[in-house]
Simulated assay, not measured.
Amino acid sequence: MSLPVSIRPATAADLPAILDIYNHAVLHTTATYDHTPVSLQSREEWFAGRQREGFPVLVAEDDGGAVVGWASYGPFRPKLGYSRTVEHSVYLSPAAQGQGLGGQLLEALIAQATTEGYHLMIGVVDAENDGSLRFHERHGFSEAGRLPQAGHKFGRWLDATFVVRRLQEMDAPGHGEQ
């Protein structure tokens, strides 16, 4: 694989690669608790929703133009009181892992979320995924709690770990304000 050289906003043309990367994680890891691969149509609907709601989808592209990773954030919960909090995802192709690319994608998300005025970024990580937990710690996240047996996959119960990073200090919005 050629080393990644750019991170850029995703386009609809990137969705097949985003789908392949995500579905690999579905089939082989506990990075997502989805059990079955998702369809291109579902990724198209997800992408359209992200665009409509103003949330980023970024891709990492190697010097040959191949998408080797992607990252996004979206709403943490739909209630107004969570409007300054986002939940993120970062996924890499197996060949792109361990080269610092995930960190580049995550730092780009953090920068964008900070610029857009978000206060807190949350990640949900399988508690047995030590690599992802260390990755988040290196990027300023701390463990905020574990939900024992919150999910299941591959015939076993899985604990979900919430990791958080405060993006910036700010006063809380007034009651009823976003």
Rank of each mutant, 00 (worst) to 15 (best):
D20V: 08
Q168P: 00
A25T: 13
D171F: 00
L15V: 03
F47R: 06
F47P: 05
R52K: 13
A150M: 07
Y73V: 01
H175M: 11
Q104D: 03
G140Y: 02
L105R: 00
L27D: 04
L109E: 06
G81F: 00
G100T: 02
V125F: 05
S132W: 01
H35V: 13
A60F: 00
A13H: 12
G64I: 00
G102R: 03
G103Y: 01
R8L: 09
A172Y: 10
L58S: 03
E61M: 00
L3M: 14
Q168M: 10
T114E: 10
S89H: 03
W157M: 08
Q168V: 04
A96N: 05
R134W: 10
H88D: 08
P4R: 13
L92F: 03
E116M: 08
H175G: 03
I21A: 11
P173E: 04
G100R: 02
D126I: 03
R166I: 11
R138E: 06
A66V: 03
R50E: 07
Q112N: 11
V26W: 03
V57L: 14
R77S: 11
V59H: 04
G54V: 06
D63N: 12
G145W: 08
P9H: 15
E116F: 07
L106A: 02
T85D: 10
I7G: 05
V90W: 01
P75M: 11
I7E: 08
H139I: 01
N129G: 06
H152Q: 15
D171N: 13
L109M: 06
A150V: 01
L27P: 00
L15I: 08
A172T: 09
R8D: 03
A95E: 15
S72V: 02
T85L: 02
D130T: 15
T30V: 12
H119P: 11
G131E: 09
L58C: 12
T85A: 02
L40S: 05
Q104K: 15
W70G: 06
V5H: 13
L167G: 00
F135H: 01
R8N: 07
F141A: 05
Q41A: 14
R165K: 15
P75Y: 12
Y82P: 05
L92S: 02
Q51E: 15
V5N: 14
R134N: 06
P94F: 05
E87K: 07
Q112T: 10
A25W: 12
P78D: 10
M170E: 15
M121L: 12
A25E: 15
A108G: 04
L147V: 14
G100C: 02
A95C: 04
T161R: 11
G64F: 01
T29A: 07
F76I: 03
G81A: 14
M170K: 13
S39R: 14
M121T: 11
A95H: 07
